[in-house]
């Protein structure tokens, strides 16, 4: 009986040992193209700076803030074509950059010492990624 019981228990243990666990991690957000992605932004702001716009006579007419962006293609799960989109949250104006991994966007009518933000996202195969918002104080 003991041998039979042992065999039986081993068989059950093997059966249960062979059982699979749910392989889906919770939360599932590790893919950078996922809307719920929480890792390193795909579109980073490498630096910001201000610039004074002069007219033809050399007189300053406006101050702009320039955001320098970099697309982290090294984080892509697979090589793909993309379009970067930047949006000024103040007026919703968008600019796009096709397959550029480094680009810059400036915003006008800024005041030194104020905080300004810029939204960036990618569009891949007709679908956009999550939006990353970058804010900086104009120096």
């Amino acid at each position: 009986m003991n041998r039979q019981a042992a065999f039986f228990l081993v068989a059950l243990a093997v059966l249960f040992g062979a059982c699979l666990k749910d392989p889906i991690p919770d939360p599932l957000n590790s893919n950078p193209f996922d809307q719920d992605y929480t890792g390193t932004p795909l579109v980073e702001v490498t630096s910001t700076n201000s610039a004074v716009i002069l007219d033809d006579d050399g007189l300053p007419i406006d101050t702009v803030m320039v955001f320098h962006f970099q697309v982290r293609t090294d984080l892509f799960p697979a090589s793909t074509s993309y379009r970067a989109i930047t949006r000024d949250p103040r007026d919703g104006s968008e600019l796009t950059y096709q397959d550029d991994d480094q680009f810059a966007r400036s915003i006008a009518n800024v005041v030194i010492g104020q905080t300004y933000c810029m939204e960036a996202q990618l569009e891949v195969v007709g679908t956009t990624t999550r939006v990353w918002t970058h804010c900086a104080i104009l120096q």
């Binding site: 392989p23 889906i24 893919n31 193209f33 799960p77 697979a78 793909t80 195969v125």
Partner: peptide, 21 residues
């Protein structure tokens, strides 16, 4: 279980936000 693993693999390797969604 295998189906879920395939889903996870696809999720990890996909570069299509629509497919991921």
């Amino acid at each position: 279980g295998r189906q879920l693993r395939d889903d996870k693999d696809l999720y990890t390797t996909s570069a299509d936000p629509g497919e991921i969604a």
